[in-house]
Design a protein around this nucleic acid. Structure first.
Lengths: 204, 204, 204, 204
DNA sequence: CATGAATGAGCTTTCATTCAT
DNA sequence: AATGAATGAAAGCTCATTCAT
C-alpha cells in the first residue's frame, strides 16, 4: 500500500482487467444463468469493451472454465485435507463444515457449472472428473467400515456427498452463522447415523 | 397463437400429434439439454413440420412446461401416498423406492427442468413450488420424531430428499434391477440411521 | 319472411356465409389494418373455419377485392348522378353531401384500400382507376367555367376531391347529424368560393 | 439491444453507417411499402449486414420512427414560420409552396407513415399529434377572419390542409418546375377563394 | 359445404465473435 | 491493451394456404 513507489504495481493492468472480467462473468452467470448470459452483459459489468473479453478468454466457455479452475481445486481440497478429529462425528462435521464453507463461496460457480453440464459435453466431463475425485476420497475414508456389509462404499459416498451438494446448491445455506452451524450439525448427524446404520448387519 | 396452445387437439389425430411432440421434446431435451435444443430438432424427431409445434405449444418453454405438468404430479404423488409399512425402515424404503421409480421414468425431465431453472425464473418458481410441496410432506412425516431435538424437520427433510434427488438425478442410469434394489436399500438405511441419530439427544 | 315455406330461402346457406365473411373481413381490416389482419382473425369473427374462407375468396387479397367491388360502385355513383340544383352552391353541396354519405358507410373499406395500395400494385391500380373516374367526372362539371383561365380543370378537380376524401378518410366526420351538416356546408363553401376565385382572371 | 438504438454512433464511421441505413430504409419503404419491406431489403440496399441494422434501430418500426423524426419537424416548420406576405393570397401561396416543397422532399416518408398508421397504433398516434399540431397552427392564422361566421376554423383548416396533403401525397410527382408552380397557384387560389367565401355571411 | 390439422416458406431478431483502428 | 462497429450464422416464430376427412 505505502510500499516503494519505484516498484511496479504487483498487479499489472492486464491482471486487474482479467480479475474484473472473472468477477463480472461470475456475477452475470449467477444472475442470469450461463445460457442466458451474454458476453455483452459480462463486459458491461466489467466496464470493458467487447474485444477485451476475447483478449483474456477464448470464448464464453473459456470464461466459465477459468472460474471452474478455481472452484474445482477448492472442492477437492475439502476432502483431501486430513480427516482428523477427536471422534468420527467430529471428523465428519469438520469435513461437512469445510464443504459448506466452499459452497458458500463458490456455490454460484457450481450452479453455473451444473447448468452448463446439461448441454455441454466439456463441462459434463470436467464435472464427472471432479466429482469422481472427491467421491472416491470420501469412499476411501468410509470404505473400511463397510467392508463386511453389503453396501457399496461408492454408493454410500455418492449419496452422502449428493446430500451435501444438493443441500448447498439449492441455496439453502443462509448467511446466519448460527443457522449455518445448526445445518452443519444436522447434516453431520445424518451422515454419522447413516453410517452406523449401514454398518449394522441387521439392515443388510 | 393461431390455435390456443392451452386447449389443443380437438380430435384424436391432434392428440396423437401432441403426444409425439411431447415425446420428441423430452428426448431432444434429454439428449442435447434444454438450452441447446432447437425447435427444429424436436419437430424433426416428431416427424412434423415447424408450424405444427406452435399449434401445440406456445414456444420452447411451453413444451417443457407440458412435460413438467406430468412429472410434477408424479413427484408429489410419491410422498402423498400413505406412508405405510410394517416398520419405519420398510416405510422409508417404500417411499424411496417410489421416488427412485419416478426418477427412472421422469429423471430426464427433471434434469431438463433443473437446467432451465438456472436461466428461467418461471421454471425456478415451479421447481421451488414442487420441491417445497414434497419436502413439506416428508417433514410432516419425520417431524414428530424430531420434536424434542434441536434439529429442524425442514432441514432434515430437505437434506434427505436432496440425497435421493441428487443421487437419482446424477447417476442412477442403470437398468439392472438387482443393482437398483441394492441402491434403494443403501439409501433407505442412511435415511433410517440418520433419523435415529437425529433423535438421539446426545448429538444435539 | 312469412313467405311460402315451399320456396327455398332467398339467401342460401352459402350466400349467408359469404356475407358473414365479407362483414367480418371489413371489420377486421378496419380494426387492425390490412397488413396486420390475419385470415385467422377474419374466420374467428365470422365464426367459420379456415378452409371455408378459401371457398369464398381466392386469398386475403380476394376478400379485400370483394369489399372494394361494392365500394367503388358507390363512389362512382356519387359523381355520376346528375349535378342538379337550384344554383351552383346547392349543386356542389349535394355532391359533397353524397360523398360524405358514402364515406360514412364505406370509409373503413377506403382506408383499408389506401393502406393496401402502398404495398400492392393491384390495389394501387384499382385505386388509380376509380379515382381517375370520379376526378374526371368532377373536372367535366367544373371544366367549362375554367376554360378561359390558366387553371387546369384536372388539377382543380383533383384538389377539391382530395380535400373531401382526405377530410373524410381521416375519420373527421362525426355521427352527429347536426355537425355533419355543418361540415358539409363548410366544405361546399370552400369548393364554391375556390371555384369563383379560380374563375377570377385577376388570379392567373 | 447490444447497442442502445437511442444513442448510436459514437464515431463518424458509425454516423455514416446510420445515415446509409436511414436512406436505404426510406428508399425501400417508398419502393415496396412499409408492410412488404423486409429488413433484408434495407440492409442489402445499405450494403451492410443484417446485424448492423439492429445496432442502429430497435426494429423495422424503429427505422421508420427515425425517418419520421426528421419529417415531422419539417412539416411543423412549414406552418410555424411567420405568415408574412404583401397580401393574403401571397401569404397563403408562400405557405402552400413551403408545404409542397417539404412534400417533394419527404413525401415518400409521409406515404410510408400513412400506410403504417393503418396497422400500428404508435404511428397513428404520432400522425395525429403532428397533424393536430399544424392544423392548429393554420386554424390560428385563419381563425380571426371566421370569427363572425358559423364556420369552425378547425374544420376549415383541416379541410384546406387535407387538400394540400392529399394532392401532394397522391400525385405531385412531377419534377417540372413550371408545372409545380402552376399547381401551387391553383391550390392557393382555392384556399383564398374558399376563405373569402367562408367569410361571406350569405353562405352561413 | 364445412372443418381444422398440418404445412413450410419467409421473416425478424439475437449474439458470439472478429478485426480495423 | 483496448476499443466498438460490423458481421452473419442461427434460431425463433408467424401465418397464408392446402387438403384429407
Amino acid at each position: 500500500m505505502s510500499a516503494d513507489p519505484g516498484v511496479p504495481a504487483r498487479t499489472t493492468r492486464g491482471e486487474r482487467t482479467a480479475a474484473r472480467l472473472r468477477a463480472a462473468a461470475r456475477a452475470v452467470f449467477a444472475d442470469r444463468g450461463y445460457a442466458a448470459a451474454r458476453v455483452e452483459d459480462v463486459v458491461a459489468e466489467a466496464g470493458v469493451s467487447h474485444g477485451t473479453f476475447y483478449t483474456y478468454f477464448e470464448n464464453k466457455a473459456g470464461a466459465l472454465d477459468a472460474l471452474i479452475d478455481e472452484t474445482a481445486g477448492q472442492l477437492q481440497a475439502v476432502v483431501d485435507e486430513p480427516w482428523e478429529g477427536t471422534d468420527v462425528l467430529t471428523t465428519i462435521a469438520a469435513v461437512i463444515d469445510r464443504f459448506v464453507d466452499v459452497f458458500s463461496q463458490h456455490g454460484d460457480v457450481v450452479r453455473t457449472w451444473l447448468e452448463a453440464s446439461a448441454h455441454d459435453q466439456h463441462f459434463r466431463d470436467r464435472l464427472r472428473e471432479v466429482r469422481t475425485g472427491y467421491v472416491e476420497r470420501v469412499a476411501q475414508n468410509l470404505g473400511p467400515a463397510l467392508d463386511s456389509t453389503p453396501h457399496d462404499p461408492q454408493v454410500a459416498a455418492a449419496a452422502l456427498v449428493a446430500m451435501v451438494e444438493g443441500y448447498a446448491t439449492q441455496g439453502m445455506t443462509s448467511d446466519d452463522e448460527e443457522q449455518r452451524a445448526s445445518v452443519v450439525r444436522t447434516l453431520a448427524s445424518i451422515w454419522f447415523g447413516g453410517l452406523l446404520r449401514l454398518m449394522d448387519p441387521s439392515t443388510s
